[in-house]
Design a binder for these strands. Structure first.
Lengths: 231, 231
DNA sequence: CGCCTGATTGATAAGTATCAAGGTCGGTGG
DNA sequence: CCACCGACCTTGATACTTATCAATCAGGCG
């Protein structure tokens, strides 16, 4: 049984500031403000597999990814789960949910990861002082909403093959052609089963659009053909 | 061919104020402010079937439903479409999309309808003066986002039968047990075909959970059994 | 070396869209 | 006033997609 307790990292402020700067929400802040925020922020280190928070938990902190990959997902009664977002440095884990009292999604580290966290009320105080941040949250949440509309269109309108291809393309746009994901994670992101995702990958490999880069990795060798993919 | 041109209604301010009051965004406003807003707002009358705006159009106005039912949907390549929201009095048609430049969804009147519209920049000026409105937009958008997460879980995790049942329950919670919707509209809301939706309805009628209330209507006679429905 | 996790392929079954064929109702025009 | 027409509703048969179940393989790590 793995030790699930996370560790407070106590990183120097400069490292935290760098993560805050990566986040769209804090774009307009002066370096003094960023420093203030960094002082209030605590970095926490998680081990691959650890949960940072769970769907339905009270949302007491604002969370920001600082290092590593973190999935934001929801569990299905059948035991499988659906990955909505894969967060990396500068991505907020729960900016939208913070306005409600509970987390919408679960956050789980899929690599070793470091997360910045700021108490909920301190975050809202800052938003009160800097209304621009509220507008950025609106933008962020609206963008997320639009992505989910599009995902639904994809799920209802396209077959599994196209969905996996679209997922690969989206992920490659964010993370580059070298995806450090297991087949299962890709499947959960695309909303299908591991087996079905693998069948699509096999087909893509035969067409030399991807080449598997070993366990837990997928290398996309021809992004252009992936984008214009037709069965 | 139907006349698609909508008509400016020029309703008295008091009628417009009533619609504004129904909207969660304007809860904290004084009656003076509401009146100011009502003066700037134009009511427009649409005939059943008319489009108020279309997916991808530039979002130049803030829209609020004042009378009638309006679907917010997106078209699928196959010609079918997916209904995300059915808006009625007090519902915003595009609060989230207003922060982007384009409409995410199409808005179509499915009954004769009246809509309030406020120029985009005047709306944002108001938000600037009253930061509480920005927070309400965050709340509204976050709630919408959470709904779509749940819808995706439903689509991926439940069969069509449960999805139609859930849709009926959600709609009945908002509109009451007497739903003035065509089978096709219900199907588009549930993300299935008209035929499949009808098969579910037939089953529900056999179990006396619903009774069809004539063409273009569904009457839910046993909401409790609908909520706890198992196949 | 053997075990555990992840990847892969094949066979099968279930669920649902699709296609096809009426059926029903309300409105409209002769 | 009646008959027809069009929109909507309903049911049945079929085919296709994809989940599920089962078996095997590959590689890293203790």
């Amino acid at each position: 049984m793995k030790d699930l307790r996370a560790h407070i990292a106590n990183l120097p402020e400069s490292v935290k500031v760098r993560a805050l700067q990566e986040c769209r929400l804090f774009e307009g802040l002066t370096s003094t403000e960023l420093n203030d925020l960094a002082v209030r922020a605590v970095s926490i280190r998680y081990t691959k597999g650890d949960f940072i928070f769970t769907e339905g938990d009270p949302a007491e902190f604002f969370f920001l990814a600082q290092e590593g990959l973190i999935t934001l997902h929801k569990g299905l009664a059948s035991g499988k789960n659906v990955i909505f977002i894969i967060a990396s440095i500068g991505d907020t884990l729960n900016a939208a949910a913070l306005s409600m009292n509970k987390h919408f999604l679960s956050a789980q580290a899929i690599t070793d990861a470091v997360v910045l966290r700021i108490p909920r009320n301190e975050f809202w105080e800052l938003v009160g002082r800097r209304p621009q941040i509220a507008l950025s949250i609106i933008g962020l949440t609206a963008t997320a909403l639009n992505s989910e509309y599009n995902r639904i269109m994809d799920i209802l309108g396209e077959d599994v093959e196209l969905r996996v291809v679209h997922s690969l393309f989206t992920l490659a746009t964010k993370f580059g052609p070298n995806l450090m994901l297991k087949r299962e994670e890709l499947a959960n992101y695309a909303g299908t089963t591991t087996e079905s995702a693998i069948r699509v990958l096999s087909k893509l490999k035969k067409r030399e659009i991807i080449s598997s880069a070993g366990r837990g990795a997928i290398f996309i060798s021809d992004l252009a053909r992936l984008q214009n993919y037709r069965r």
